[in-house]
């Protein structure tokens, strides 16, 4: 089973929920996949034994000058301007390339080869019952979705997979949620939280993934999120109170369920509720 954790807004507690949920499941092996490849953070809370690292590549073009006839086809078809013919010289610009393959597929002289370009890495560590898979985008790269796809390839379909996604509701966030069985949306009861929750709900709805909401930093104040969930018929899965102790344990990088064991039952309950929903 695949459970994705999403939030329209950053900093609502997505990683808090993902890591503590993973730590509260004991009946099955858990794969926690950190798909927030621009800023992966789950490993801060789950420091285990490193078992594997895999470098992730994408194909980019390399022109075989001996075969090239300077016909300019590649230069004409590349909408990203990543390959261009000037006079008699073909230049390639790796950081503009989207690896679409138009140049090598369409070259009439078979003069373009594919070579590998490193876009990031996937680390695998083990902590108790949890296998943590972390995707980390190489700085200077902006292609998160292909790396997220590779991270998702590490799912263990015999057990529970928790996918901690990036914030927002654009391509990378979508890539993380797509194809999961259930999406847990983490929000906070503020106008920011509600605004971004709306966007995230629209996104998961477009993807056809069922979802429920966890309200983090719950307390007196804004009831907009509750009204919205009621109106949209979205299940409220859990409310985590506004509590200095939670903020402090998070700041230290200690998992909440280790610092405050009472939360283990609460997160296990969340797990049971999700099982009931799927």
């Amino acid at each position: 089973m695949r459970i994705s954790i999403a939030s329209g807004k950053g900093g609502t507690g997505k990683t808090l929920v993902a890591t503590n949920l993973a730590l509260s499941i004991s009946d099955q092996p858990v794969h926690l996949l950190d798909c927030d490849v621009e800023e992966p953070n789950a490993h801060v809370f789950l420091q285990g034994d490193h078992i594997d690292q895999q470098v992730v590549h994408l194909p980019i073009p390399k022109v075989n000058q001996a075969k090239c006839q300077q016909c300019s086809k590649c230069s004409d078809v590349c909408v990203f301007n990543a390959i261009a013919l000037f006079d008699k010289i073909i230049l390639t610009f790796d950081d503009l390339c989207h690896s679409c393959g138009a140049c090598w597929h369409l070259c009439p002289h078979n003069a373009i080869e594919k070579i590998d370009k490193e876009i990031g890495a996937i680390d695998k560590t083990k902590v108790d019952n949890i296998t943590l898979i972390t995707g980390k985008l190489k700085i200077g790269n902006h292609a998160s979705p292909p790396l997220i796809k590779k991270v998702k390839g590490q799912c263990n379909d015999g057990g529970i997979n928790i996918l901690d996604g990036p914030p927002g509701s654009s391509c990378p966030a979508m890539e993380a949620v797509e194809g999961t069985d259930y999406c847990v949306m983490v929000t906070e009861p503020t106008p920011f939280g509600l605004n971004d929750l709306r966007l995230a709900v629209d996104m998961v709805t477009a993807l056809g993934v069922p979802c429920g909401v966890v309200i983090n930093r719950d307390g007196p104040g804004n009831v907009g999120v509750l009204d919205y969930c009621r109106e949209k018929g979205i299940k409220l899965l859990m409310q985590i109170p506004m509590d200095d102790r939670i903020a402090k344990s998070y700041a230290k990088g200690t998992p909440l369920v280790k610092e405050e064991p009472a939360y283990r039952d609460k997160f296990n309950q969340l797990y049971q509720v999700i099982l009931g929903e799927v």
Binding site: N81, A82, A84, F86, L96
Partner: peptide
């Protein structure tokens, strides 16, 4: 107006 590689596209045009 290129969404990617405006400098390259501009150079192409000037050439």
């Amino acid at each position: 107006l290129s969404s990617s590689g405006a400098g390259v596209a501009t150079a192409k045009m000037l050439a």
